[in-house]
Write a protein that binds this DNA or RNA. Structure first.
Lengths: 113, 113
DNA sequence: GACATACTGAAGTTCATACTTCACTATTAG
DNA sequence: CTAATAGTGAAGTATGAACTTCAGTATGTC
């Protein structure tokens, strides 16, 4: 049976930021951006065990940055857009919070004429 | 003398993701999005020491998510756009990597007619 | 069948970092 | 002046997470 994936890609920005904070996981995302890869193929250039890579992939999957499917004995990893959208949304929301505030400040200053 | 701020906001995506991975720091960013705050004001609702908050602010500053200035004995923290741009840029670059690939794939499929 | 490959699961180690305490230095208020 | 406030610096603790090892399962190859 496939392992259960908790909270799969459901817009939890904290989880995504945590995932992207790790340099090895960013390296994996770099590779996956060029095309799908098996776990062992991903592991080759990284200097860590296959187990460690599988753990990283699980993290990426849990936060919606990657998707995987197992065919035969090979698990193939693809990049997943959901995690990227989560980050973009978080950024957009927070940016608007303070730009709105700056806009109101600008309005106030404009009224001073 | 002002503390030296290493590597201030110079486009290191890893640093920014690391910073945003921590829930307390995201809470601080939330508050700063509504307007500038002193360190002790930031500390009030968080259930941690002033020292801890100051450490978080230092991290946010080091990765370009916040800017601070000290007037008298009060250090006021503002949000800083640089860190946000760093993240957006990282996302944009990586997204383009794989959408380009999908485009080429689409072209290939289109040629099959 | 035997052997290699590609992973999975459980459990242990180690190192980073979020947090603390305590002592200290400004700065401001009474 | 004294007392309170706001923050800094150094040092220690402790929890989590990145990584390991090892033993196992499933799949593919000869």
């Amino acid at each position: 049976m496939e392992a259960a994936i908790p909270n799969q890609g459901r817009g939890d920005a904290g989880r995504v930021f945590d995932a992207l904070g790790d340099p090895t996981r960013r390296a994996i995302i770099d590779r996956l951006s060029q095309g799908p890869q098996s776990v062992s193929h991903l592991a080759r250039p990284l200097n860590i065990t296959l187990t460690a890579v599988a753990q990283h992939v699980a993290v990426l999957q849990a936060c919606g940055l990657a998707r995987t499917e197992k065919v035969g004995r090979v698990r193939t990893c693809h990049i997943e857009e959901a995690g990227f959208r989560t980050v973009e949304q978080w950024i957009a929301e927070h940016r608007s919070l303070w730009t709105d505030r700056l806009d109101r400040l600008g309005d106030l200053l404009a009224e001073e004429d």
